[in-house]
């Protein structure tokens, strides 16, 4: 295997914000909801390294905690979607026939909705909040995993070694978990990484529209929404929040991209 500087770079780009987010409790210089009205709307300065927002809260601390919130929502939603969508996709591929048709058409129904529209709809029903945003994103991503995994799972289920395992008397569950699932790890890894990235963006959009994480809790999308009203007074909060969203999503997406290159031999090309 050749060394891939791109992959290394991507891993670093993901590891850095994850560590910063997880370490928010120790790293953040201020309470993310602590207000200091007198010192508000400041630009970057000693003490407040990224400035303060419209209520005088420290932007750096809010971004650290906000990143953590974004990562948690994104991880929870993609995890749920992987579990639900992956199970459905595997079952469809394994049992074929009516099971497959029903499951996949149900997935088509969900898939027919534009991502933001379905997410907004689910949040509208469940009520706004970080947890419901995670559920909404999971609903949106479930059909993506189901559709993605069904194809390769079909090929594996048709293969000789699955037939062999079945002949040897293995249970359905065992075949799926031991023989089929591990062979899908690569595809799942790539897609999980890509979806984690776009989940960051969807969560930010929902919070931006007031449907995700609720104030006063720090959230990157919310910081953007609050900051845009005072852009001409002090653009810093909105600017840095936007940059943080970009950075989080960028790293995860790049990781997925680099992994795909690595795992998909066809893309190596000549040379």
């Amino acid at each position: 295997m050749r060394k891939s500087p791109l992959l290394l770079f991507a891993v670093a780009m993901v590891a850095l914000p994850v560590l910063l987010g997880l370490g928010a409790d120790w790293l953040a210089p201020y309470d993310p909801v602590g207000q200091d009205i007198v010192a508000r709307l400041r630009g970057p300065m000693v003490g407040h390294w990224l400035g303060t927002d419209q209520l005088g809260r420290d932007v750096l601390s809010r971004i650290l905690y906000g990143s953590r919130a974004s990562l948690l929502v994104s991880a929870a939603s993609v995890g749920l979607a992987l579990l639900a969508g992956g199970t459905l996709g595997l079952l469809a591929a394994y049992y074929r026939g009516w099971t497959e048709r029903l499951v996949m058409r149900a997935m088509d129904i969900l898939f027919a909705f534009p991502v933001m529209l379905l997410a907004i709809g689910v949040v509208a029903v469940l009520g706004p909040g970080a947890a419901t945003a995670a559920v909404a994103i999971a609903v949106v991503y479930t059909p993506i995993f189901a559709r993605l995994l069904r194809g390769p799972a079909l090929v594996i289920c048709d293969s000789d070694f699955v037939a062999g395992a079945r002949a040897a008397g293995a249970t359905d569950a065992r075949i799926l978990l031991v023989h089929v699932l591990p062979n899908l790890a690569g595809v799942m890894l790539v897609q999980t990484s890509l979806l984690l990235s776009s989940a960051i963006l969807v969560e930010a959009s929902l919070s931006f529209l007031g449907l995700g994480t609720q104030p006063p809790n720090p959230s990157l999308g919310l910081m953007l929404a609050e900051g845009r009203n005072v852009l001409m007074l002090s653009p810093w909060a909105a600017l840095f929040a936007g940059a943080a969203i970009l950075l989080l999503a960028f790293g995860l997406n790049l990781l997925g991209d680099a992994l795909r290159d690595r795992l998909d031999p066809r893309l190596r090309g000549p040379g």
Binding site: V33, G34, Q35, I37, Q54, L55, A124, P128, G210, L211, Q214, P215, P216, E226, N229
Partner: peptide, 29 residues
């Protein structure tokens, strides 16, 4: 759901929490 009201609620929450209340904000549409 109006930005000035959301700000008022956040400041009031901080003040009330220092004086014996514990306020949970419910941001509704």
């Amino acid at each position: 759901p109006r930005q000035d009201i959301k700000d008022i609620a956040q400041v009031a929450q901080a003040e009330l929490n220092k004086a014996g209340f514990k306020v949970e904000l419910k941001n509704q549409e």
